[in-house]
């Protein structure tokens, strides 16, 4: 199951709610304002690092670029829309917003 999150974790509880239902090894993809979660050195960095021990975390590069986010928490993988489609090939999708 691929979980996508499109909300800034500073704005809503969507990020923390999604994480609560996460099953080990299932990937998370941050899109739109969701990508603010992976900016290095922010309030959610330690949470991202904990998640990375059990689950892969991806962020949509065009959304990072659009928002001027260049420093990313270590271990987060940046992908483009092609990579998004690749994850959808592998998993059913649970879109959180």
């Amino acid at each position: 199951m691929l979980h996508t999150i499109n909300k800034s974790p500073f704005e809503t509880t969507t990020f923390e709610t999604c994480i609560r239902f996460l099953i080990s090894a299932d990937p998370i993809l941050l899109i739109e304002d969701g990508v603010y979660a992976v900016q290095a050195g922010n309030k959610f960095s330690s949470s991202i690092e904990t998640i990375l021990k059990t689950n892969p975390v991806y962020a949509l590069q065009p959304d990072l670029s659009a928002r001027g986010i260049t420093a990313i928490t270590d271990g987060v993988q940046c992908i483009d829309y092609d990579g998004f489609v690749g994850l959808v090939e592998e998993h059913q999708v649970n879109s959180w917003f």
Binding site: M1, F21, L22, I23, D26, Q92
Partner: peptide, 8 residues
């Protein structure tokens, strides 16, 4: 609930 989601 997480396990149920995984089955969908």
């Amino acid at each position: 609930i997480g396990s149920l989601m995984k089955e969908q």
